[in-house]
């Protein structure tokens, strides 16, 4: 009887851990951009100014759609995978793993209106969980076309 209970515990514990990690991953993947604290947002106009002053001071990562990135992105930005997908978060994690935790990072997406963006929240949370202290999210109200490109801020496109 006793062994039976221990056996059940041995089976139950890994299953519980597995279930908890799935719940945690799901929670991470479903975090809304609206949950990112206001004081950790950067407006397009401000980021554009910063880039003109020192284009290399901040690592800029696009955490949304590869296709949108290839069509147009912020000069110097790198594609880091969609934050709404586990594979995307893995790409982001690998990209920043070796960086000092005080590296200035701006993440952006612009796929959808801010309150609908599925990518930014999970990416922001991952970076914070990894210990990065200088992470900001670019506030894009509607989409990258309307709030960056059409405003006349500089863009590049991939070949």
């Amino acid at each position: 009887m006793k062994w039976n209970r221990i056996g059940k515990r041995r089976l139950f514990a890994p299953a519980l851990l597995s279930a908890l990690s799935i719940v945690a991953l799901h929670a991470q993947q479903t975090m809304s951009a609206t949950e990112i604290p206001q004081n950790q947002l950067v407006q397009p106009e401000q980021l554009s100014r910063e880039l003109q002053t020192d284009p290399h001071a901040t690592l800029i990562l696009q955490v949304g759609s590869r296709m949108l990135f290839d069509e147009a992105h912020i000069p110097g930005a790198e594609y880091a995978g969609p934050g709404s997908r586990p594979a995307g978060l893995e790409t982001l994690k690998n990209r920043v793993a070796a960086l000092p935790r005080d590296q200035a990072i701006v993440i952006y997406c612009g796929c959808c209106p801010w309150n609908r963006c599925p990518n930014l929240g999970p990416a922001w949370r991952l970076l914070h969980q990894m210990g990065f202290t200088q992470v900001r999210a670019l506030y894009i109200a509607q989409n990258f076309g309307a709030d960056w490109v059409n405003k006349g801020y500089r863009v590049e496109k991939s070949q």
């Binding site: 000069p75 059409n150 006349g152 801020y153 500089r154 863009v155 590049e156 496109k157 991939s158 070949q159």
Partner: peptide
Amino acid sequence: MMLGMLTATSGAQEPV
């Protein structure tokens, strides 16, 4: 992989 940059544009512009 990003292959390279073709353009860098700026200036307020309406979409075509």
